[in-house]
């Protein structure tokens, strides 16, 4: 049995004050992600998947319930400690890349390391290594504005990875990419997961992206709806996902 990286138990997130019109963005969600897993979270718009991601990524606080990441209970942490936690244990890949366009790609990737006080001498090799893994060595000296969307997202992945976080959180990372770039990014992520044992959690509404995962959690109206595991080829898994999504629509109605 592998150790759990993310443990979410009975998490609730309520908007609005008590007594007024309360809406449950999350209503008692529980699941666990183990080390080295590649997990997808799917659900239609408004299902609460972004809220879930925000809670796990410590950007938002759960109203109720417990979230443990790499053994620490993040629901009890203070603002400053949460910042440090994010910078050390989490890696983010956002839909809109979120690279700093006034830094070179190299500097963007090096930023998490220099934030943690890694010395300049050690930063170079680490950035080089992660850049090789993602195949972006040639563009390290360029500015983000000079490279394509796919390359930008690989750089964002490299930045998420460089400080060896406990888990990488992806928020629709293929959302702004064309299909070719999306495939190449997903292949790279799969590669990271399988060869380097990086744990990844991916939030998406795109069945194609999700089909690269090993396991998919579906949520609807803030509750866990279904969980499926990939047993055979990616293509079959893709069809299976589409079936679940079709069900999701009908059961609701």
């Amino acid at each position: 049995m592998k150790t759990p990286v993310v443990e979410v138990s009975n998490v609730k997130k309520v908007y609005g004050k008590a007594g007024e019109n309360q809406s449950y963005a999350l209503n008692g969600v529980s699941f666990t992600i183990h080390e080295g897993e590649f997990v997808g979270i799917m659900g239609p718009s408004g299902s609460g998947k972004t809220t879930l991601l925000n809670v796990i990524s410590t950007l938002d606080q759960a109203t109720e319930g417990m979230v443990r990441i790499a053994g620490s209970d993040i629901t009890k942490m203070k603002q400053g400690a949460l910042s440090d936690f994010r910078s050390q244990k989490l890696g983010f890949i956002f839909q809109d890349f979120n690279l700093l366009e006034n830094l070179t790609i190299y500097e963007n990737i090096a930023l998490p390391l220099s934030l943690q006080g890694v010395t300049s001498r050690q930063i170079g090799p680490k950035v080089q290594k992660v850049a090789e893994t993602l195949g972006i060595t040639a563009i390290l000296h360029k500015n983000p504005a000079e490279v394509s969307g796919g390359q930008k997202q690989r750089c964002a992945a490299a930045r998420a990875l460089v400080h060896e976080p406990a888990i990488i959180l992806g928020d629709e990372p293929t959302g702004a990419l064309d299909s070719k770039n999306a495939t190449s990014l997903l292949t790279a992520m799969t590669n990271l997961n399988q060869e380097h044992g990086v744990s990844i959690m991916l939030v998406t509404h795109d069945a194609y992206s999700a089909s690269y995962c090993e396991r998919i959690l579906f949520i609807q109206d803030g509750e866990m709806y279904k969980e499926i595991h990939r047993q055979s080829s990616r293509e079959d898994f893709y069809r299976e996902i589409l079936d679940v999504l079709a069900d999701l629509g009908t059961t609701k109605a």
Binding site: Q79, G80, R86, F94, N102
Partner: peptide, 16 residues
Amino acid sequence: IHRYEMLRKIGVRREL
């Protein structure tokens, strides 16, 4: 704005 927001997201302390 979005630069600072992004930095906060990846875990830079407010004081920093």
